[in-house]
């Protein structure tokens, strides 16, 4: 109980870099949304209710006077299937926590604060409040980014000229580097990368994220059980 506030603040501070990048590509989404005629209320409703960057990009792309409700829901499901895996990977962090706590915390879990929390858990100690504090901060940054883009859209008509669309890729590349565990990751990452590139080429939409992630995890399961590898896994705190 006492840890709640300091942990939330610590989580928010750890998320400053990813929040800056979320703001940058949030502004790209805002510009696209302005071109599709979304109001600021539509935008904030989506930011608050969905709170998932990649899915929101696709939703804005599909936005029209006659909303393709079924196709949109299906697309969002495919893009966000990775949250099933993200949620599962948070299980150790939530050990000993009740259902209500889990239900309250999970809405504000995005790629960004999840990745920061996983890194923190490897290096020291992360808590659910750390995750949540990051989520709240990210929500504020994401919302302001999208609104800046939406309302000041005339300003930057071509955000890709400023590489703002690459902010997402760049920040997640940096986060992926932080999650590298050394030798035991060589095989899973090669398999994941190959599967992602193949799925990106041959499957529609965003299947490649789940395809790569699952292929990498399965290869780690199937791989030879080296003694070193087991030790490395045991070094990870909180298991």
């Amino acid at each position: 109980m006492k840890q709640r506030k300091p942990e939330m603040i610590r989580g928010a501070r750890a998320n400053v870099p990813v929040a800056a990048s979320a703001m940058a590509y949030g502004s790209v989404l805002g510009v696209l949304a302005a071109q599709k005629g979304l109001s600021w209320l539509d935008m904030m409703y989506m930011n608050t209710a969905v709170f998932a960057g990649a899915a929101q990009f696709v939703m804005v792309d599909m936005w029209s006077n006659h909303m393709p409700i079924f196709e949109m829901t299906l697309a969002v499901m495919v893009i966000n299937l990775r949250y099933l895996l993200i949620g599962a990977s948070l299980d150790p962090l939530f050990s000993g926590r009740g259902l209500l706590h889990r239900m309250g915390m999970m809405h504000l879990v995005a790629d960004e604060n999840w990745a920061v929390t996983m890194t923190e858990q490897r290096n020291g100690s992360a808590t659910t409040w750390f995750l949540f504090g990051g989520g709240v901060f990210l929500y504020l940054a994401w919302s302001s980014g999208t609104l800046i883009g939406l309302l000041g859209g005339g300003f930057i008509t071509r955000p890709e000229d400023y590489a703002l669309d690459f902010a997402f890729t760049a920040v997640f590349t940096a986060l992926a580097v932080g999650l590298w565990r050394g030798k035991s990751d060589v095989l899973p990452w090669i398999v994941a990368g190959a599967a992602a590139l193949l799925a990106h080429k041959f499957l529609p939409g965003k299947w490649y994220i789940v395809a790569g992630g699952l292929a990498g995890a399965i290869s780690a399961m199937m791989g030879p059980c080296e003694i070193e590898e087991v030790e490395e896994v045991e070094d990870v705190p909180s298991y």
Binding site: A115, F172, D185
Partner: peptide
Amino acid sequence: DALPGALLFSL
């Protein structure tokens, strides 16, 4: 344990 890194890399 391998999942988070593999997922981000695929992303």
